[in-house]
């Protein structure tokens, strides 16, 4: 087995509401090899989104270690974490989270503004990413002029444009019809098989989970 790109070691996460402790994840350990496509399934409230957020570096574990490409992200400062995210993480959300005032092109370009790339280089990357998701002809469209499936494809282009280490998807098909779901899943599969992207996807849709190579189940904060 190749060197794992993600190592989750004894991670626990609790939230505090008033002085009440609400445990969400309990002593989770998980290893994900490079170029893997993993689906995290489980009922709502099982903690799967929390685990994904921890991997994305937008939330911090209560205890344990999270290593991504050998780096312990639980110990990074807020500012370093932001920089780390821009270089290593591409995220896809259930409700796409595109900036409504920016065009498809500009939305995809956003993560590249955090790099040192020139305008010309950015243009090349954005055009490539948009053509991979089949939306090269929709560059000048605003999100409200696109269908839900198209919006999610723009979001996927945005997630991969900076060539991140990990692509994290949180219920990427949760708001889509069946036809669009199939489109999105085949696109993620292609990113995994053709471009070797490591993908971790949270879903409760078995149809979507079929595209993944490994399916893990979370229930009440424990991995099975």
């Amino acid at each position: 087995m190749p060197e794992p790109i993600v190592q989750v070691e004894n991670v626990s996460k609790s939230y505090y509401r008033d002085s009440l402790e609400i445990p969400v994840l309990h002593d989770i350990s998980l290893e994900i090899p490079r170029a893997e496509f993993l689906a995290l399934m489980g009922p709502s409230g099982s903690g799967k989104t929390t685990l994904l957020n921890l991997l994305a570096g937008i939330d911090q574990p209560t205890s344990g270690h999270l290593l991504v490409a050998g780096k312990d992200i639980a110990s990074l400062s807020d500012g370093d974490l932001a920089k780390w995210r821009s270089e290593n993480i591409g995220m896809v959300f259930q409700f796409y989270n595109l900036m409504p005032v920016l065009t498809a092109y500009e939305n995809v370009e956003l993560p590249l503004l955090l790099t040192k790339l020139s305008r010309k280089e950015r243009r090349k990357h954005v055009e490539t990413a948009l053509s991979i998701v089949g939306l090269a002809d929709r560059m000048k469209h605003y999100p409200r002029q696109l269908s839900g499936g198209q919006e999610q494809r723009v979001a996927i282009a945005r997630a991969v444009v900076s060539d991140p280490t990990l692509v994290l998807a949180d219920e990427p098909t949760g708001d889509l019809d069946r036809k669009s779901t199939d489109e999105i899943m085949s696109m993620l599969s292609r990113l995994n098989s053709e471009f070797g992207k490591t993908i971790i996807m949270v879903t409760h849709d078995p149809r979507a989970a079929k595209a993944a190579h490994i399916v893990r189940h979370l229930d009440k904060g424990e991995l099975s």
């Binding site: 994305a56 937008i58 500012g79 932001a82 920089k83 780390w84 995210r85 821009s86 270089e87 993480i89 995220m91 959300f93 989270n97 900036m99 409504p100 956003l110 993560p111 955090l114 945005r158």
Partner: peptide
């Protein structure tokens, strides 16, 4: 949108 921008890596 703010959350998304931050998730994308904006400080």
């Amino acid at each position: 949108e703010i959350g998304t921008l931050r998730a994308l890596g904006f400080s």
